[in-house]
């Protein structure tokens, strides 16, 4: 795309970040009292809410039930006012269904489902404001919500996107950078073991560059892990003090 210079000669991006710099992250756990777990995250201007219900008895048809593990049920939806142009439906379109599936697969890899046979865990995520990196914001919010619900995880799941501009990998893409139409890589990582829970790349990239892009994205996920861990610890501190009072 002509016109926008995504990376300046001095090595700064459009919003002034360095190539390997994340946007500002603010998060909170326990936003809602009725759900079993909930969390809210802001990554730059992307805002996402996640709510967890369960583990509980399987709703609907019992045939879905697994005798040796819990099933994970997800729904990804975007508020109709979240995008620049108004969306007609919050969920149910092809893109949201795909996101739902991705989320489900990601969390099946992370949650210790074998601890809850014949039950179900619901994870509902909602994008309130979209500015790039919707999938990663959702995964990060959902991780916090699952932790808030007290469901055992193998490890945190941290997700981040990465792009590739002028031989430099950029991490945590904003909407502007996403819509410029370059290569985009979404990565969900279990940071301690460095396992990948999800990897998805669209459009082509020279194989030689793949490694540097993966490294940048993995590092970004690890940076995110540090932030999420801080949020969880701060939240626990807050809760324990309030119980102690």
């Amino acid at each position: 795309m002509a016109g926008i210079e995504l990376l300046s000669d001095q090595g700064y991006r459009v919003d002034g970040r360095k190539p390997n710099e994340l946007r500002k992250i603010q998060a909170r756990m326990g936003v809602f009292s009725q759900a079993d777990g909930s969390a809210y995250i802001e990554q730059g201007n992307t805002k996402a809410l996640a709510v967890v219900y369960g583990p509980h008895e399987i709703r609907g048809s019992r045939s879905k039930s697994q005798h040796d593990r819990a099933i994970i049920n997800c729904q990804y939806s975007m508020a109709t006012f979240s995008t620049g142009e108004r969306k007609r439906r919050p969920h149910g379109d092809r893109k949201s269904s795909e996101m739902t599936l991705h989320l489900k697969q990601t969390f099946e890899a992370a949650i210790l489902t074998q601890l809850y046979p014949r039950s179900q865990i619901d994870i509902y995520v909602q994008i309130l404001q979209a500015d790039g990196g919707n999938y990663s914001a959702c995964v990060n919010a959902a991780t916090l919500a699952v932790v808030d619900a007290g469901i055992p995880l193998r490890d945190y799941v941290c997700a981040c996107s990465a792009g590739f501009v002028e031989d430099t990998p950029l991490v945590d893409l904003s909407h502007l950078e996403e819509s410029a139409g370059g290569t985009q890589l979404s990565l969900a990582v279990l940071p301690k073991a460095e396992h990948l829970a999800l990897i998805e790349m669209d459009s082509r990239l020279h194989q030689d560059h793949l490694e540097s892009m993966m490294d940048a994205a993995t590092q970004a996920c690890k940076d995110l892990y540090a932030v999420l861990d801080r949020v969880v610890r701060d939240h626990l501190q807050e809760v324990t003090t309030s119980i102690g009072e």
């Binding site: 809602f32 009725q34 759900a35 909930s38 809410l49 709510v51 219900y53 709703r59 049920n73 729904q75 939806s77 508020a79 109709t80 919050p90 149910g92 619901d122 509902y124 909602q126």
Partner: peptide, 16 residues
């Protein structure tokens, strides 16, 4: 007007 009863509120609102 459009009212979205999101599944966030209660799991019964999931899907349609």
């Amino acid at each position: 007007f459009f009212v979205d009863c999101s599944a966030n509120a209660t799991p019964e609102f999931e899907g349609r």
